[in-house]
């Protein structure tokens, strides 16, 4: 895949929509990799005790998966200058083979100076958005 060039990119261009399946095993793996061992992400009993519907995914895992839509498109992840999200709804991950399905789409919202583009992202789980104000600044060639 050839990385997009700033000159060839237009505001409104869509990034390829990607669907991510998140299982309990993925949460355990992410906990170990990130060092975030908050039990709401792996212990159903604990999650319910603190008033959550079930185990929920790390917001940071959802953020990382959404970020892949940007880096897969840009080619070089080092081109991401800035990336931020708000976590607006939890991604509830049931204890089964399928887990939760998160669908992420993105578009070029603005072309800025110095070959920088602003990408806005939308992440959906069970028909509702789970990230708000999700955007990244990416420097293209």
């Amino acid at each position: 895949m050839t990385p997009p060039r700033f000159a060839d990119v237009a505001e409104g261009d869509q990034l390829p929509t990607t669907r991510f399946q998140v299982t309990r095993a993925d949460l355990v793996r992410y906990a170990g990799a990130s060092g975030d061992f908050n039990p709401i992400h792996w212990n159903e009993r604990f999650a319910r005790e603190v008033g959550l519907p079930d185990v929920i995914a790390h917001g940071m895992l959802t953020m990382a998966l959404a970020g892949r839509v940007v880096t897969d498109w840009a080619g070089d992840p080092g081109a991401v200058l800035d990336y931020g999200v708000r976590f607006t709804r939890p991604v509830v991950v049931p204890d089964d083979e399928d887990g939760a399905l998160v669908e992420v789409s993105g578009k070029v919202a603005k072309k800025l100076d110095d070959n920088v583009v602003k990408i806005t992202l939308t992440a959906r789980f069970q028909g509702q958005t789970v990230l708000g104000g999700a955007n990244a600044l990416v420097r293209l060639a």
Partner: peptide
């Protein structure tokens, strides 16, 4: 009370 904590927002400026 960390048992009540969830992540509200996150931004990285590289």
């Amino acid at each position: 009370d960390y048992s009540r904590v969830v992540h509200g927002d996150q931004r990285f400026t590289h």
